[in-house]
Design a protein around this nucleic acid. Structure first.
Lengths: 193, 193
DNA sequence: GTCTATATTAGGATAGAC
DNA sequence: GTCTATCCTAATATAGAC
């Protein structure tokens, strides 16, 4: 039994952490392997497609992890009021933002903006991840009687991402806390239709 | 009369365009001067602080331009219904997104995420620009009878930024169009309080 | 198959000719 | 004061020793 799996995982974890903090372009492969305490060659051994492949795996892996989180927060067992579940999710996100010392709680946001016009493969990966989150959230909303569930989910995710942006720029959780009420209002409004 | 003013302005314009499309880190000084059709040395002649100074001027200049746009869209002469003014602003932004071929309609968003944890001077510049937009929008909302005007404005700006992110990732104006209704709902909800 | 050393290109920045 | 040539570092990626 080797430590192969560990090394690959460490590189992926280090890349996720650095991309969320600095973005894709500003993060070098050398910095990634140094953070992962892995030899330089291992990066290209495990990710022969280089930085682009690593970026895509980071996006898809973190995307799946966050999809699971949405399942926990909005799944069948998670209380029945979608308005309060939404508000609670934003309050938790505000706390996460602060606990990360204002690194992006969303590990793909910075990368998504950076690559949208320049790296088609990565752009598609981010689009698919966002779509998976919106689908999951919309499913939860629909099952709780919200009419335009997909539109509502799209707006709630957008509001969360934008609130992260303002919170990071201000080094303050306040925009995310403020957005919690607005998100609740969006969902409450959709519930009445 | 020299062409000095032109060259400096061309460099600033080129940097703005490239930063909005590729971000700060992925854009090189050489690419900026090539796009501006300016000699390489001019960049450091006009911006002795190098790329960081150029980045900060891009943020502040575009920030001021967008502040003026908010003034046009939400100023005294711009119709009295803040709900419809907000909706119209989002519909216009969706059209802009498409007309830019899905470059970011917000020239500072990508930079803001990239530098938030790494370049303190630039981070402050983005924070001040966001604050200026929120202040202006909140002033308009307050004058039209919205109680928690600053919170409302914060959420509307966040929603717009997040909708741009989803729209760029999807190469579609749909998230911004969808967010138009949610933004209207946020403002309408605040109007009732 | 793990890792070191290097190839190659591009990065930001500067010196100095004109 | 405009612009060209260059410096030095760091980028991604690869070759090949062990």
């Amino acid at each position: 039994m080797t430590t192969t799996g560990d090394t690959r995982a460490r590189i992926l974890t280090a890349a996720t952490e650095l991309f969320r903090r600095q973005g894709y372009a500003a993060t070098g492969m050398k910095q990634i392997v140094a953070t992962a305490e892995a030899p330089y060659g291992s990066a290209y051994h495990f990710f022969p497609g280089g930085k682009a492949q690593l970026g895509e795996e980071v996006v898809r892996t973190s995307g799946a992890a966050y999809l699971a989180l949405i399942g926990e927060l909005f799944g069948e067992d998670a209380g029945t009021d979608p308005v309060e579940a939404t508000r609670e999710a934003f309050l938790g996100a505000a706390a996460t933002l602060e606990s990360l010392d204002f690194a992006d709680p969303c590990p793909i946001a910075t990368v998504a903006l950076e690559v949208a016009s320049t790296h088609e493969g990565l752009r598609r990966a981010t689009a698919e991840v966002f779509a998976s989150w919106i689908d999951a959230l919309a499913g939860s909303y629909a099952s709780r009687g919200i009419g335009s569930a997909r539109a509502t989910a799209t707006s709630v995710i957008a509001l969360l991402e934008g609130a992260f942006m303002l919170g990071r720029a201000n080094r303050s959780p306040e925009p995310v806390l403020t957005a919690a009420s607005a998100a609740a209002a969006i969902v409450a409004g959709a519930l009445r239709n």
